[in-house]
Design a protein around this nucleic acid. Structure first.
Lengths: 130, 130
DNA sequence: CAGTATCCTTTACGATACTG
DNA sequence: CAGTATCGTAAAGGATACTG
């Protein structure tokens, strides 16, 4: 058994596990952290690395990750202005434990897709002949 | 560099990493998987283990995890009817790579909270004396 | 370049009531 | 017991235009 709780509250009114998991829940946070794995990137480079994220949402997520201490934001007042983002030690250590999950994903995506296909096929069968 | 892509598309129109990460994004999926770590649980037991999740949302999430092949659902037509959920091999292997993240969370939550407090304090300072 | 500002849609989630 | 049905809210995200 894990030495953890997943029940809603602790002394400070927030389950530690949930508080941290919330940092990587959502569509983009983890991808942003991963994009910075090999070193600092500028705003536009992060955007390019991910491909399909809007400026607004990227800014939001970067701010949130900065607030939690996973990355730093440094401004070089140009012109042109250049803002670069870099993982902190905390961020790097998070990415370290996060990477196995990413590798797992790459390895098992096939199984997941198959499971989905089978589940949906079975559901279709039930829908057609009720 | 990781042998992964986080760009939006692959041959099948979906990045493998994103597809799997989506399974554990959201507020509840990972907690549900963790609650089943030590063996099968009935619907009400999962609900109790998590504490604050509504029946509707729990059902939704269980269905989605079942669809992806992470857990199985077995019905014992009572009465009273008893439905139990259990991790598949796939689900167990996912939990294995996911657990380090949970332990990391328990370990580093203090650092994260401090970072948040400092960030918010700095933001307040800027708001008060603009 | 790295954002803001607006507006809008979608999705997740919450509350409550009802049922085989 | 393990759901479904309905209704409502809030948060996340998307599209587009504008700016120091």
């Amino acid at each position: 058994m894990l030495p953890i709780t997943i029940t809603p509250e602790d002394d400070s009114g927030l389950c530690p596990v949930r508080a941290v998991l919330a940092s990587v829940s959502g569509k983009w946070q983890s991808l942003i952290l991963l994009s910075l794995e090999d070193g600092a990137l500028r705003f536009s480079a992060v955007k390019r690395a991910i491909g399909d994220i809007t400026q607004r949402v990227l800014t939001e997520n970067l701010r949130s990750l900065e607030r939690d201490g996973y990355l730093t934001r440094s401004v070089d007042a140009g012109p042109p202005v250049a803002v670069s983002y870099e993982l902190t030690d905390l961020g790097r250590s998070l990415v370290e434990v996060y990477k196995p999950l990413v590798l797992w994903a790459a390895e098992h995506i096939g199984t997941v897709k198959d499971a989905r296909a089978r589940y949906d096929a079975a559901a279709d069968g039930r829908a057609e002949k009720p």
